[in-house]
Design a protein around this nucleic acid. Structure first.
Lengths: 238, 238
DNA sequence: CATGAGTGGATACTAGCACTATCGATAGTT
DNA sequence: AACTATCGATAGTGCTAGTATCCACTCATG
């Protein structure tokens, strides 16, 4: 398979493929001569994976490159988990707000999260990116004077997280063991799982809101949901 | 309060504040003369909210502007919910993959999601952005040949979503009713909640992974977690 | 009341990101 | 031989989120 064929069969433009090659998102094809190469199904699959990470997982090219590198090197599964987790984390770097109290207290959020882990017996390394991510959100709630959200949401959120994490691990276990599929499940599941969960949350929010605040009976209930209606949404931007 | 004071008390540079004014993220100050204006606590709060949406919620300026506009207009709560939900949605626009079968079947993901809602009695409008978001992720799993993830994760994910959604609504209910705080809770909770959940998920994943695959007993267990260790992570980039 | 820092507003510029276009020297195809 | 396609390199594009600069003005201070 030549590059143009790779292009047409993935729907990605040739210059973009070259770009991915440069950036290490796509491994080089097999050389047949100094300036000619052959690509195969593996490349097609790889491109699809890359597009999934970029478009659906909304990773940056650099982040995706890290995930890809972790897949390619024969890393232990646990490391792939870590890399995938880290890839999705946010650049961070909130400017240390100058006016705020500078006493050495290590931020409300950090304390709450540490306590949460303690309470639940969650053993994690202190470099787990989720710790900082969650702590920052809680700090932000506090900074906005909305700690009411924290109290209402933290415990149920932890329950939910535990539930999903169990399923995540089950997904890994259900993959053909020892194969490359296993690492792909870890990477893809970790990266795209956030989006899936976010989507389900939005649906559940609206459903729950209808449950709690039923419409006045004269308002028409939302039309029953069809797959076609959802598919229609897939074709347009927001 | 003048602009420079607003700047120092929020840690945001003056030109950036001007930029936010231009983009409608920040309402104009009270004029005292043709080219002079006064700002107050409301502006400080607003800037903090904006920074939270941008940095922690990682919204774009345009998305944040929509959320802000929803807060400012006296919208019904339910609409604010919708706007906030929509603001977090992803640009979408996956190129309709040319090679894939073009029979009118409305995508695996859409079908799965529609069935899920049916099964659980979730009543939602078909324009709920979560529907397309979740459906797209499922489609991506399928396109990558990883429907094993779907089967392992969809139901627990829905359980988790229900749990969080309940808490989200409880958070709204716990805010002082009728005040502007309520709408702020909706907006902030919706936008930042995704990040919180993502963080908790990463923590739970690692904890669960330790639970399922205990370390060989010679490996040292991770050091017990302290708030300070988490706070340390907050200060660096990835 | 002069002076200099600060202000609002407009316009222009910048860095980073994810491509996209073009070029020259080959290589395969007809 | 003619023509298209390819590799690799370099340069350019469009978008986003700010920065920087300029201007006319104004306010606080000396």
């Amino acid at each position: 398979m030549r590059m143009s064929e790779l292009s047409t069969s993935t729907g990605v433009a040739v210059p973009t493929l070259k770009f991915y090659l440069r950036e290490g998102l796509l491994h080089a094809g097999e050389r047949t001569s100094p300036n000619q190469a052959q690509y195969d199904e593996g490349h097609v699959e790889r491109v699809r994976l890359v597009r999934a990470l970029l478009e659906v997982g909304s990773l940056s090219v650099a982040q995706a490159a890290k995930v890809i590198a972790a897949l390619d090197s024969q890393m232990p599964l646990s490391s792939v988990f870590g890399v995938a987790q880290r890839a999705v984390s946010i650049p961070a770097s909130i400017a240390t707000s100058d006016d705020v109290d500078a006493d050495a207290a290590p931020s409300v959020g950090a304390t709450l999260i540490a306590e949460l882990c303690e309470r639940r017996g969650w053993r994690v390394h202190s470099n787990n990116p989720g710790l900082a991510l969650a702590a920052r959100v809680l700090d932000t709630y506090a900074a906005l004077g909305l700690e009411t959200i924290t109290t209402a949401v933290l415990e149920p959120g932890a329950d939910a997280a535990q539930l999903v994490a169990g399923a995540d691990l089950a997904a890994v276990a259900s993959a053909a063991p020892d194969t490359a599929e296993m690492t792909r499940v870890v990477a893809v599941g970790t990266v795209l799982g956030d989006s899936l969960l976010a989507g389900l949350r939005r649906i559940a929010q609206e459903a729950e809101s209808f449950r709690r605040f039923p419409l006045p009976e004269d308002t028409p209930a939302p039309a029953p949901l069809t797959a076609a209606a959802i598919a229609a949404q897939l074709d347009e931007d927001c």
